[in-house]
């Protein structure tokens, strides 16, 4: 064991690009864009691409904290339900209780935060395995959505409310701007801050992290709470976009989110991954779906490709790593 492990010499950067998951994804993304623009001339237009951002913002918002959670070795299955619950609270407190809209939006955000805080307490402090804890809260929060709304949808939001989900800031959709800001923040937090370093450390080796004085419980709690808060924000933008709050909103969205994160190269076992990877994963999924739609494949059928890509990505990654 002594001097046998010889440090691998540093390879040139060019060779490294294709060795990182992000590099591979980038190449795949370019290939997809070229392929799809050959298949449909409506694909590679500024309008089409910007419009796509409206549709994937909610998924993308949830994928940001999910990336950190999965890197830390956890998972959050309840994000779709938290989104629905928050949206329902928005509609409920505005339409039925008659609160002013800004207050209703605040309640929406706080509802998401509450959902996340409950997850965080269960996982970080009670130490329920994340998979099962959030599976249970997935059902509970969805139940809250139905129970509170009694499955009635709220609609008729005022004009100006539509700004957040349908409006524009300059040439860009409003939510796209918000998303870009949050992507930058999430990227900086994960890659540049001490907190981000802790997230990697916990996912890498929780025991060693604890032995190094990292507040493991607090970090985990924060991550799940952040996931909830982001679900609240996504609910707000979602409601503004579709102008109605429904209890069955975002059913199954957690799968899209997790698929994007894992496709983006984040290890499901924790310890590695990046926001850039997740964004690339999201882009691939969204463009694939959109491109297929434009070439005449029917809506939900695009799921098929996504599932395939997900399994293949991990499979290839496994094969490359084992070598």
């Amino acid at each position: 064991m002594t001097e046998t492990t010889i440090a691998a010499p540093e390879r040139s950067r060019r060779a490294n690009l294709l060795r990182t998951q992000e590099g591979v994804l980038f190449v795949v993304l370019v290939a997809i864009i070229i392929g799809l623009s050959l298949l449909s001339d409506r694909f590679l237009t500024v309008n089409n691409l910007l419009n796509q951002t409206r549709l994937f913002t909610e998924t993308a918002l949830l994928a940001l904290p999910m990336t950190l959670i999965i890197i830390s070795g956890g998972i959050d299955l309840s994000v779709g339900s938290m989104l629905a619950w928050s949206a329902v609270m928005l509609g409920f407190s505005w339409q039925l209780v008659g609160l002013p809209l800004p207050l209703a939006v605040l309640i929406c955000l706080l509802t998401g935060l509450l959902g996340g805080v409950i997850n965080g307490l269960l996982i970080a402090y009670v130490r329920v395995p994340p998979l099962i804890a959030t599976l249970a809260t997935l059902a509970i929060y969805r139940g809250f959505s139905f129970g509170i709304s009694q499955a009635r949808s709220a609609r008729g939001f005022p004009e100006e409310f539509a700004f957040w989900g349908q409006g524009q800031v300059g040439p860009f959709p409003t939510q796209f701007v918000i998303l870009v800001v949050l992507i930058v923040i999430a990227h900086l937090v994960l890659s540049r801050t001490g907190f981000g370093r802790w997230v990697y450390a916990i996912g890498n080796n929780e025991v060693a992290a604890r032995y190094s004085g990292i507040p493991v419980e607090r970090v985990k709690f924060t991550l799940y709470a952040a996931s909830g808060l982001m679900a609240g924000l996504a609910a707000f933008i979602f409601t503004s976009r579709v102008t109605t709050t429904r209890a069955d909103a975002a059913t199954g969205l957690e799968l899209d989110v997790i698929a994007a994160v894992v496709l983006g190269g984040t290890s499901i076992f924790g310890g590695s991954g990046s926001i850039i990877g997740t964004v690339l994963g999201l882009l691939i999924i969204t463009l694939l779906r959109n491109g297929l739609l434009l070439t005449g494949v029917k809506g939900d059928a695009t799921f098929m490709v996504i599932g395939l890509v997900l399994i293949l990505a991990v499979l290839i990654n496994n094969l490359v790593r084992r070598r």
Binding site: G194, A201, S212, G213, S272
Partner: peptide, 24 residues
């Protein structure tokens, strides 16, 4: 943290002292 690098390992316990407004 065997998958992380020398720098990240060496400073893990003192990371707080190396932060400027939260950033490393």
């Amino acid at each position: 943290l065997v998958q992380m690098n020398v720098r990240e390992n060496a400073t893990l316990a003192v990371l707080r002292q190396l932060l400027r407004r939260g950033f490393v």
